[in-house]
């Protein structure tokens, strides 16, 4: 199927922006600029951009410890994301969150999470809210292949099914739970089949094909808006870097990583398709690469120059104080 040129170019640009962000942030983390480190999502761009391009900007997401790609694809400006990684006052969480706690609840980003499996429950709760208030929106809960071995994920899936919630569960399945290969720790070794066991449409898809991710998400969103309940999507993908920055991984081979990079890279695949279809010229593509590089450079500059949070605010916002206000 031929790709719509405008959509294709924006989608490709988003994936390039994420890739450049991650590779830049990775280097900055090694230089000590990112307190607590970060989880690099390079290789997983198509899952984030494919899903988000099928959503309305007002839809809700809740995600995982590896969430830069989801956050950028959701529309948060990269300078705000970078500033949060640097724990600066200008970051989306005012420097209180860093890499794992990116959020913009007002705009439907209900947060990354330091706890494996927690995002699906929060998204499910948002879907409860959407349904209670009669809004025409969906919520998307991201989970990794590690998170599908937590009980809370499946409790949330079950609840979404029985209440017919407008929820889409996306397994951003990069095949390694920290350093453990998914097959070694996943009983039955079929994540989509687990989903199907709860009685909802459940699919395993190619997470390196941004158009396939987009198509399945769009269909899931339409079902949700029609009142038909949740959908479970297991998107097979791969991360090129370690679980955390600086990791010396002995748990997989360099050949395996090189194979995914050279044969299944989501950006290479999609750019080649757009060029072959005439939707994009090589010159356009190079200009796009340069343009995102400049955008990320500016984001780093913004983060560097941003002020640190005021440490005298450490008690601010713990609670509203309103419970005892009339005392």
């Amino acid at each position: 199927m031929t790709t719509d040129s405008k959509w294709g170019k924006e989608t490709l640009r988003q994936m390039l922006l994420i890739r450049n962000f991650e590779e830049t942030a990775d280097k900055l983390t090694l230089r000590g600029k990112v307190p607590g480190g970060m989880h690099n999502s390079s290789g997983q761009e198509a899952v984030a951009v494919g899903v988000m391009s099928a959503l309305d900007p007002k839809d809700v997401i809740a995600t995982t410890h590896r969430s830069h790609h989801h956050t950028i694809a959701k529309g948060m400006p990269v300078n705000i994301v970078m500033a949060e990684l640097f724990t600066k006052a200008t970051g989306c969480s005012g420097g209180r969150g860093a890499s794992m706690h990116l959020a913009d609840v007002e705009n439907g980003h209900f947060g990354g999470n330091g706890i494996v499996g927690a995002g699906v429950g929060i998204a499910m709760g948002a879907a409860v809210g959407i349904k209670q208030m009669g809004h025409k929106k969906v919520a998307v809960g991201f989970v990794g292949d590690g998170g599908v071995n937590t009980g809370r994920t499946w409790e949330a899936v079950n609840m979404a099914v029985i209440y017919k919630l407008p929820l889409i569960i996306i397994v951003d399945n990069n095949q390694y739970a920290v350093e453990t290969f998914v097959e070694r720790v996943t009983g039955g070794n079929d994540i989509a089949k687990r989903g199907a066991g709860f009685g909802l449409p459940s699919f395993t898809i190619d997470g390196q094909d941004v158009e396939e991710v987009h198509k399945y998400t769009l269909e899931a969103r339409n079902r949700a808006l029609a009142g038909e309940g949740p959908t479970f999507i297991n998107a097979l993908t791969y991360r090129y870097y370690g679980h955390n920055v600086g990791e010396k991984g002995q748990y997989r081979t360099q050949e395996e990583i090189a194979d995914w990079r050279s044969h299944r890279d989501p950006i290479d695949r999609f750019s080649a398709k757009l060029i072959s279809e005439g939707a994009l010229t090589q010159a356009d593509y190079e200009a796009m690469i340069n343009s995102v590089a400049k955008e990320i450079e500016e984001a780093v500059d913004f983060a560097e120059k941003s002020p640190l949070p005021d440490v005298s605010t450490i008690l601010d916002g713990v609670d509203s104080g309103l419970l005892g206000a009339s005392k």
Partner: peptide, 25 residues
Amino acid sequence: DRVKDSPISEAAMVAAGLGSAMYGC
């Protein structure tokens, strides 16, 4: 719709409350 019977599923029950409270309920 305003008094919901739930499965015995405490993590999901509190998550339902948490997410919907963040949403505005």
